[in-house]
Nucleic acid binder design. Structure first.
Lengths: 164, 164
DNA sequence: TCCATCTGTAACGATAATTGTTACTAATAG
DNA sequence: CTATTAGTAACAATTATCGTTACAGATGGA
């Protein structure tokens, strides 16, 4: 299942917290909304905490909440916090250094990768958690249903979902 | 080793062909420059052929060459041809539909993913194979060496490289 | 003080994608 | 006809991700 979904889950987590305000959320509660194991949530929370985006407290009646206002958390910060991976990978094995192209192609690809990453970052730095939270409110229902149908997968194989 | 390097190898292949002009290259020759198995090259060539970027010929003295001028092949076409994968993945399991956020977050993330992909495409559509081929020529040596050092990996574990 | 609760984290298995490899068929040039 | 080459199927090795269990450490409240 190698396809890193940490960024998606991190945005989900932060959106939940934006709506919870000052009340700390427990990893169990978040896991219920994300539909995964609490440890998966805590792993991502740990990365968000190291990046200074959330604060967590151990112990009874602990949990995690945003460290900043939703309006001042951009998706770029989230993207960097969770190590979402490169847009594309370079050569698995170093190319042939005895070939003029092989000798220089990695540098060229590296510069291209940098440009692409900048393109990604220009988009992500313009979107805040507040904006995502607000986009959740209204009629996003049809879009979500369409996206689900488009991917047309036979997942959700009979798991039970708790009411929140 | 899940980190898709097909785009990088495809750019490498097309750059080799841009320099070869009308002379068809054999998958063996390309594989020697890329430092991989010829079948890996043929798999990617097959995708590039279906996208109309290269033409191949079976049989003795066959091989592959560009179907278009290097100046009219953009990296966006290459990116699409090889199915380089999404910039980030959505939820592995569908989120909890009984939660207001879980119900709508996938649609929101899907819209974000579309915007990010457009950011990537805006960059890639401005780079041609001709441009990459020219960037190979001069002093790219130091950049390549730096990129290699930056990744600081202990690969190239004693493989033999043929002279081209 | 003690205890239930919650985070942080290590460890491990299942799953899945990628890459490398072998082996074969089909097409083509000479 | 034959050597050569692309196209492709099939399989193993490698690797990242995700889910899960287990446990140590911190914390608030009885």
């Amino acid at each position: 299942m190698p396809a890193n979904s940490r960024f998606a889950i991190a945005v989900h987590i932060l959106t939940l917290m934006a709506r919870a305000g000052d009340e700390p959320l427990k990893s169990d509660e978040v896991a219920c909304s994300v539909n995964t194991n609490p440890v998966v949530i805590r792993r991502i929370l740990c990365a968000l905490s190291k990046a200074g985006l959330v604060v967590s407290q151990t112990g009874a009646s602990g949990g995690s909440r945003l460290a900043l206002k939703p309006s001042s958390i951009t998706l770029l910060e989230v993207y960097r916090a969770v190590d979402a991976g490169e847009v594309f990978a370079l050569h698995p094995q170093p190319p042939n250094a005895k070939c003029p192209v092989g000798m220089n192609i990695e540098g060229a690809l590296d510069r291209i990768l940098n440009e692409v990453e900048q393109g990604v970052e220009r988009v992500l730095e313009k979107i805040t958690i507040e904006k995502v939270s607000k986009s959740i409110e209204p009629r996003a229902l049809r879009s979500a249903a369409k996206a689900r149908a488009a991917r047309s997968e036979n997942r959700n194989s009979g798991k039970k979902e708790r009411e929140l």
